[in-house]
């Protein structure tokens, strides 16, 4: 008993490791292992429909992507989707954040309403917009007809361009609030003295915006750009519900193609390669953003 009582307690370092070990184990088990395993699978010919043909093929799945028309088309659609969604999100989020940063009556209510779409799951968002865009009973058709802008109801999602733009709009609506929160938080940190000083220097509203607001918002913008790029690149649920990727290939993004390849075609090898390409591209873009914007603001973090 005496021997037990005299045992030295663990040192700080050991305690830290001991306390973090469960979390590390869980992360390794639930995150690191599946990620690593998916890379291993991406190096295989691995289609559940043909288990006997399963074998290690190195980087053949990745090489095949260069001539894979479905992949190249989806990549193009994804890139365009990211551009449109990101452009709209940044511009609209900035405007909304600037408006919500002002003091006015009903601001709280407007802020709550602006945040509402973020609480909506992607599938529900897709279903809601599908109802709105419906060719027979859609609210959009009803509104436009009542305003006298159209004579008869249109099937908005049946042309390639229409489907693409409306899908992008639905995605923006869903993810915009998150960007607004980030930018609003950034705006609230700008000292009012800077605006006062700029006003004394006879800077107009535009110059105050470009010389004071934008530089202070570069870091929040960086976060918005990185996260929204990832979101748009991985967009699946809203698109799946709204158009299923159609008409034709018009809204088949790489995430949609990936889910289809893995779950419908049960081609886990190729699907895993797609997933890794998505990861690599978003990583590259994020690094690019950081290189472009980090430490470019007129302040130190």
């Amino acid at each position: 008993m005496v021997a037990f009582a005299e045992r030295r307690p663990l040192g700080d370092n050991a305690k830290a490791w001991a306390l973090n070990a469960p979390a590390i184990a869980v992360i390794a088990l639930l995150v690191a292992y599946p990620i690593g395993y998916s890379f291993y699978v991406s190096l295989q010919k691995n289609n559940l429909k043909r288990p006997r043909a399963k074998r290690f093929i190195g980087f053949d799945n990745y090489k095949a992507l260069l001539s894979d028309q479905a992949f190249l088309s989806a990549l193009k659609v994804s890139a365009l989707f990211v551009l449109v969604v990101l452009g709209l999100t940044v511009v609209l989020a900035l405007i909304l954040a600037l408006v919500l940063n002002e003091r006015f009556r009903g601001r709280g209510l407007l802020l709550s309403l602006a945040l509402l779409p973020w609480a909506m799951p992607g599938v529900v968002n897709g279903l809601m917009w599908r109802t709105i865009f419906d060719a027979k009973t859609g609210a959009l058709n009803g509104l436009l007809q009542q305003l006298g802008l159209i004579e008869s109801y249109h099937a908005w999602l049946t042309s390639g361009t229409g489907a693409f733009l409306f899908t992008a709009l639905a995605q923006v609506w869903n993810t915009l609030p998150f960007s607004v929160i980030i930018l609003l938080a950034g705006l609230s940190t700008i000292p009012s003295e800077l605006y006062d000083a700029a006003t004394v220097d006879r800077a107009g509203a535009w110059r105050r915006f470009t010389e004071v607001t934008v530089p202070w918002l570069l870091h929040p913008l960086l976060i918005v750009l990185i996260l929204e790029t990832m979101n748009a690149f991985r967009a699946f649920d809203t698109i799946y519900v709204l158009t299923g990727g159609g008409p034709g290939d018009a809204t088949t993004t790489i995430a949609l193609l990936d889910v289809q390849t893995v779950l419908t075609f049960t081609d886990f090898g190729l699907g895993s390669a797609y997933a890794w390409v998505i990861t690599a591209i978003t990583l590259l873009i994020s690094v690019g953003y950081i290189g472009l914007l980090y430490r470019k603001g007129n302040f130190e973090v």
Partner: peptide
Amino acid sequence: VIDPASLQ
């Protein structure tokens, strides 16, 4: 004569 909404 085929409904364009068929695509939806």
